[in-house]
């Protein structure tokens, strides 16, 4: 066999093995290329714009990461996003208290996640089906509760969460993302719950036979996913100054795509949450880049779909040997 072929094979193997590393590399390349294509791209403003835009998807992807690492999938995050936004909006209108509103949103997300987990554990239905059902239910509830009408008139303090800048430069959402990802990274790495999340995805039966109580772990995982959808919803509501019952649709595609781009396996058992963050940045950069280049927003769905397919295909080929 000629040496060149072996060499390229080795390079290919390295890239596919270290998917998260190579994704960071790809992200940087994308930024450089876009900077050449558009003088506007590499401005401080646009860079922060990207971190701001990616915050929402990144947070949903953080919750989705737990689910995917555990071998499941959560299709309901986009709808739970809208549901918890509306719950928070109703709480705000009823009490005019921001904290009540935030707690209501979080509660809504946790509750939806709890229902997902309970359906999987108690009714013994696969995550795909349970969360597909929730996708419909949560969206429906958001529309019913809001009577289909967006909620406006958020107080300035609420909007600070989405629009504020710390030290006049770093967006608040960016800081929230960094803090939450770091916390979740430690939970995955250094707690029993985190360890069990990976173990469930790798071999659920062996995990059970190691004396692990599966139901609470499963509930926890889906509640985290719901909670992160809620946090993302708060940030987006605060950014746009409104809560929309139709918001978040298609976000599950972006979030799941981010996790797979980060190199997580569709079978679960492995993955790194910071890699999902890089995944979210890539997804957003593509969106942002297409915008700057003047490509119609409709193409973005196509691109996102393609990304998921290729990210998983790369994972499969890595697994083949």
């Amino acid at each position: 066999m000629p040496i060149e072929r072996n060499f390229f094979k080795a390079v290919f193997t390295f890239i596919t093995r270290q998917q998260s590393l190579s994704m960071l590399f790809i992200l940087l390349i994308m930024w450089v290329v876009l900077a050449f294509l558009s003088p506007y791209f590499l401005t401080i403003n646009n860079i922060f714009e990207i971190t701001l835009q990616s915050a929402v998807i990144a947070l949903i992807a953080a919750g989705e990461s737990f689910v995917i690492f555990s071998g499941g999938i959560d299709l309901s995050v986009g709808s739970v996003f809208a549901f918890s936004a509306i719950i928070g909006g109703l709480g705000l209108m009823a009490t005019q208290n921001i904290f009540v509103s935030l707690l209501a949103s979080l509660g809504g997300g946790l509750f939806a996640g709890f229902c997902n987990g309970a359906a999987i554990v108690k009714l013994k239905i696969p995550p795909f089906v349970a969360t597909l059902g929730m996708m419909g239910i949560a969206r429906g509830l958001a529309l019913i509760l809001s009577r289909g009408i967006p909620i406006y008139g958020l107080p300035r303090e609420y909007m600070w969460i989405g629009q504020g800048r710390v030290f006049g430069i770093v967006p608040v959402p960016t800081i929230i993302v960094l803090i939450l990802f770091t916390v979740m990274f430690f939970i995955l790495r250094n707690t029993r719950f985190g360890r069990f999340t990976y173990a469930l995805g790798s071999n659920a039966e062996a995990t059970r036979l190691s004396g692990v109580k599966i139901p609470p772990v499963m509930l926890g995982i889906y509640m985290i996913s719901g909670a992160f959808a809620a946090v993302a919803a708060v940030i987006e509501s605060a950014r746009l100054g409104t809560m929309q019952p139709a918001s978040g649709s298609g976000y599950e595609l972006l979030a799941i795509g981010s996790v797979f781009i980060g190199g997580a396996s569709i079978y679960g058992g492995e993955g790194n949450i910071f890699a999902s963050l890089i995944g979210a940045l890539i997804v957003t950069t593509i969106r942002n880049g297409l915008n700057i280049l003047g490509v119609s927003a409709f193409y973005q769905y196509v691109v996102n779909g393609l990304i998921i397919i290729f990210a998983v295909a790369a994972d499969q080929s890595r697994r083949a040997r």
């Binding site: 360890r195 990976y198 173990a199 058992g269």
Partner: peptide, 20 residues
Amino acid sequence: QEGIIPELSVMHNITMASLN
């Protein structure tokens, strides 16, 4: 089927039942 947790490291496999 019942023993190994394949993707986890050797260390994490050994400590799976004694994490407390």
